[in-house]
């Protein structure tokens, strides 16, 4: 059986490197450094799950990507994991939080490798 694919989106190259090392133990991993790259990569080959950072070039870039995915018929079903240093209280303060959050799971950095793997395992079955 082919490995499921994960798209890891984060602007911190060191973080991407570390998390990739974890994910590669179970999944096929692709990476993107910002929202643009992420959407382009998804358009080419949709991954089985997207792991998204929130603050990249723009304050709410991760949310923007998530909303774009949810509003597109072709990508609506892709599960999204927010993995960010920004906590929800802070989101509301920065007025980027909304009553509905366009993601399936929310993990706060730093996340323990096994927690990340467990979360993805739940989503991908």
């Amino acid at each position: 059986m082919a490995r499921k694919s994960v798209l890891l989106v984060d602007d911190d190259a060191v973080f991407v490197d570390a998390v990739s090392a974890v994910l590669e133990t179970r999944y096929q991993v692709r990476t993107a450094a910002n929202g643009h790259e992420a959407l382009a990569a998804i358009a080419t080959t949709p991954p089985d799950v997207v792991v998204l950072d929130v603050m990249m070039d723009h304050l709410s870039e991760g949310f923007d990507v998530a909303r774009a995915l949810r509003s597109n018929e072709a990508t609506r079903a892709i599960p999204i994991v927010m993995l960010t240093g920004v906590d929800e209280v802070f989101n509301v303060r920065m007025e980027i939080g909304e009553s509905w959050f366009p993601y399936d799971r929310y993990l706060q950095k730093p996340v323990a490798p096994e927690t990340l793997l467990a979360t993805l395992g739940e989503l991908l079955g």
């Binding site: 911190d12 973080f15 570390a18 998390v19 240093g85 802070f90 950095k109 730093p110 490798p113």
Partner: peptide, 23 residues
């Protein structure tokens, strides 16, 4: 605090990955 947490999280994740034998 947020500015400090982000790189700290990266350092912690890198160290965990190394310590737990993922690499």
């Amino acid at each position: 605090a947020h500015q400090l947490r982000s790189p700290l999280a990266t350092v912690k994740t890198s160290l965990d990955v190394l310590l737990q034998g993922y690499v």
